[in-house]
Nucleic acid binder design. Structure first.
Lengths: 219, 219
DNA sequence: AAAAGTATGTTGAAATTTCAACAAACGGAG
DNA sequence: CTCCGTTTGTTGAAATTTCAACATACTTTT
């Protein structure tokens, strides 16, 4: 596990925990590492939520797919980030989302029960882990509010502009690269892909932005 | 504060804490109670998030209002429920939402810093409060997923049906009363009110549901 | 019980989105 | 470099949503 310690140190779950303690903890938490190729399912909708996931390398995508096969993208998870922690903490009997590998990736899974309940060897880190989980869940809630603020807009143009302005704000520059391809961006904004492409073209012709594929400049 | 103890006992923040301890805690947490008449603002967008709110009586509504004045309703908060806890825990410098009184209500405000950090008199309940906050935030995250699952649908009809079926599931019956009036339901589902009314009429004529105002029966 | 105010339903026209189909641009493999 | 699969852009028609305006139903006040 030692080779992952640099990534794990950056994980919000392990804030305030030193490398030595962290490595000792992992076995106590039932940590295991799995590999997934691009497009493979890491966690499937409908399964019980027992594990907290941590992306060690590559990236994963949280999706909801409805009865008719329409995909809605909730977020991308990058290295050091947690996923499925809310469902694991709430012990949801049936995951409402699917987690898929965006690219080949290494995923660490932790047994959530071992985090929430004091273990037999009485290691004293549960309090810190629970505090860190609380902070992480608060931060995720804020991200949800941001997503809703964007998708609550009524037109493709407004959603797109709200999204792009948020990205510009995040990186502190009017020039940035987005994390989604066109189909993914459409599934994140909850609009039609071709309509989205058309709207980007229109904004470009109006001189509001410049772009090439995933690269954008707001003018 | 004693007159609120029945409501507070049901609050997820105080799970596993007995009445006596709870009442002693309140002063330690800087608890105060405010009254608000219908439509009054309990917390205003843009302010720093310092307090966790608890609805003692009446109800409050979490809203986002954008630049153009378009309202989006996130949720209704009923007695014993928390609000703004995610922003307070994350110490957000600027609230992204507005909380308004749905009806005359009593609101308890707690200073979040007093919950997260051990106090001078070293009372031993912070760990339990943090654990409870973590559970509450996990539950709220799941509610967000449900809202997104509904609003991700592309047509008014699909959003409405997804919402109604979720309500039926919640109460375990095909007959139920919804918590929103038409304008509020439209602002929750992120659709046009008149289009929503039209769609309800259409579903009624198709024999898919019966309704009168807030009362619905799915057939 | 009437009046006033609010909420809901209805309508048709205008704006927007979705859908399907295809063209163009790009990127990786050989 | 070329081929091939994938992504992105474009288009027009059909479906849906939005918008404004008004009618009707319900509630509250006096």
């Amino acid at each position: 596990m030692k080779k992952y310690s640099e990534i794990l140190q950056k994980c919000p779950l392990f804030d305030g925990i030193c490398e030595q303690d962290l490595l000792r903890m992992l076995s106590c938490l039932g940590a295991r590492v799995d590999f997934f190729d691009k497009k493979y399912t890491i966690m499937a909708e409908g399964n019980p939520a027992k594990y907290i996931g941590i992306v060690l390398s590559g990236s994963a995508q949280i999706q909801q797919v409805d009865y008719y096969g329409n995909r809605s993208i909730l977020s991308n998870i990058t290295p050091s980030q947690l996923f499925a922690e809310a469902f694991a903490c709430a012990q949801t009997p049936s995951l409402p989302v699917t987690v898929v590998a965006n690219e080949p990736c290494e995923i660490m899974l932790l047994d959530c029960n071992h985090i929430l309940h004091t273990c037999a060897n009485g290691c004293g880190f549960h309090q810190q882990l629970i505090f860190n989980l609380m902070k992480d869940l608060a931060a995720k809630t804020i991200l949800f509010h941001q997503k809703i603020e964007v998708t609550a807009k009524r037109t493709t143009r407004e959603k797109l502009m709200a999204y792009l302005m948020l990205q510009a704000k995040k990186v502190g520059s009017n020039r940035f690269t987005i994390e989604f391809d066109r189909q993914e961006l459409a599934d994140f904004l909850q609009v039609d892909r071709s309509g989205l492409s058309a709207e980007i073209g229109k904004l470009r012709r109006e001189g509001i932005l410049e772009n090439h594929r995933k690269h954008f400049v707001l003018l």
